[in-house]
Amino acid sequence: MQAEAIEGLITEMAQAIKTRLEVQQATEPAMIGIHTGGVWLAERLHRLLNIEQPLGTLDISFYRDDFTRIGMNPKVKPSQIPFEVEDRHIILVDDVLQTGRTIRAAMNEIFDYGRPASIILATLVERSGRELPIQPSIVGVRPPLTHEQQITLTGPDPLNLIIGTSKQETRGTS
């Protein structure tokens, strides 16, 4: 999928998030992107929604449930939450939702910063392969993919969605 189409999806997602926040009467929300693709996406949504609080970023490497199987990710980036999480409405952003394990890890990490008022999950792609009962609130696209197919967001500029069939992506636990 090409850059222009993706930017279109992001604009639609921003609109959907706006509506959702209004319905929920969630004021003064904050946004957190998950490294790396989620941050690219969050930077755009954050701008489109004109959110007052600075954007937060999470690297969930310290919270992964597969650390005892694959070890330390050598390219960990620092998590930065530059706002008070306590009692805040959080928009959590990731690129691809597949197993749900990344989101579980991210939510655990967020709770170590404080108790949010609510979390809504926005992902550019929702695909099959869920291993945990986690559902997104806002979705850009739901491509029909087979079990063997991998979908990856490349970026940060331009953004591209690439579908591959290799199974060698061992860290793919989106």
């Binding site: 919270y63 620092p78 998590s79 655990n108 170590d112 910063y113």
Partner: peptide, 23 residues
């Protein structure tokens, strides 16, 4: 460098409310 880079990402943990990660 890998040790130094990894340490860099751990510095934030000590500054949080909950100074702990479940690794």
């Amino acid at each position: 460098n890998e040790i130094l880079d990894t340490a860099e990402s751990f510095t934030g943990v000590s500054e949080r409310v909950v100074k702990k990660v479940p690794l």
